[in-house]
Design a protein around this nucleic acid. Structure first.
Lengths: 204, 204
DNA sequence: GACGACATACCATCTGGTCGGTACGTTTGG
DNA sequence: CCAAACGTACCGACCAGATGGTATGTCGTC
């Protein structure tokens, strides 16, 4: 017998993959079971409902991507603005392969569920805004250093970066590739550089 | 008997409303029929399938929003940069009410369908990139005027504006309101102003 | 032997889609 | 001028398959 946690995580990973590719509603419980090589009995042993699965998947997404970003090298520079720019570079570097491999589970799921499944929407909101919060400190520090009197808040700029990234994902799906999304991140990087008076061209 | 075009458009408008609120997959044919006060027989008289409906709805969305933007006052300024900034202001002014009332049908639908329904994805892509094309000329003119040597293309900036707008919609849905989205459009406006050397504060 | 971790079989409901039929307008032929 | 023939718009009952969820049983481990 396998470890129950492993089975549960296999189901969650299968769900994350399926929802990223087909969306929440088009993903069936049988899809998830098949992808996880488990049966429906196992599924409903670990999750009370499909909605419960989605919420747990959102939480797992938050945990795994949180670990990915925390371990990423963009935290290394001493200058907070350098860290912020490195974050954008890091996000750009992640744009590899097909859209279902680099786009965000939470961003797509919240679009489907924001009205009809408030619990799922809340889970997505928590994940998205939690990631925003990890950026806000660096942005606030950079602002204090380079643009103390600016008439925008650190949080609003952090949210803006997420808007660009999420919007770039939509364009990537419409265009079926990461090219346009990468261009958008270039514009985001240029904006940040302009905003803080760091004129250096787009790529360091 | 009503005019057949009126019935068809009623079905399309009902579909647009339902898909914007619940997404493509969660929207049932019966939902659409009920909202249009017609029966399933009428539905399948006008559309071959649910997918056909979605494609036609995307086309109608393109036509109606195209007319809305073409008639909008942001085309009035003589300076192309002023037109571009007025476009952003116009988009910000549209952020009223609940997310399902101001967000984009195509942006949300393409997220669900980009892999499993290529025909719908193509219809969304046509609509989105068609709107981008209406911006590109003004941006190109503004670039020729104010930033002729810049290392970005007019089209990439037009695409970036759409990324910000679409991403702002996602955040609006996650937050259940337009506040964050409006802040994102402020950042977009600030970026454009910085990019073209028009430093005037955010709001004119 | 009790309990957690599954599997299997099954069910009620929903969903997209079909189909025969009806009401009504239009065309055609005499 | 009229009526048969035909086409369009629409209705509503029906269907096959899919879907979320349940009930029950089995197997291995503590």
């Amino acid at each position: 017998m396998r470890s129950p946690l492993e089975s549960r995580n296999r189901l969650l990973d299968a769900a994350i993959g399926a929802i990223r590719a087909k969306g929440y509603d088009a993903t069936t419980v049988d899809d998830v079971c098949a992808a996880a090589a488990l049966t429906k009995g196992a599924f409903f042993h670990h999750f009370r409902s499909k909605e419960d699965l989605a919420i747990s998947a959102a939480e797992r997404w938050g945990v795994t991507t949180g670990a990915l970003f925390q371990a990423a090298p963009y935290h290394l520079p001493e200058d907070p603005l350098d860290r912020l720019l490195a974050y954008v570079d890091f996000r750009k570097a992640l744009l590899q392969g097909a859209p279902q491999d680099f786009t965000c589970l939470l961003g797509s799921m919240v679009q489907e569920t924001y009205l009809s499944r408030p619990a799922i929407r809340d889970a997505c909101r928590t994940g998205i805004f939690g990631h925003v919060a990890t950026l806000t400190d660096d942005i606030a520090a950079a602002k204090a250093l380079y643009a103390p009197g600016a008439d925008w808040t650190a949080e609003s700029l952090a949210l803006h970066t997420q808007a660009v990234i999420q919007g770039a994902f939509i364009l990537a799906k419409a265009d079926d590739g990461p090219r346009i999304a990468a261009d958008c991140l270039d514009h985001l990087r240029r904006y940040i550089a302009l905003l803080f008076g760091r004129e250096e061209g787009v790529k360091p």
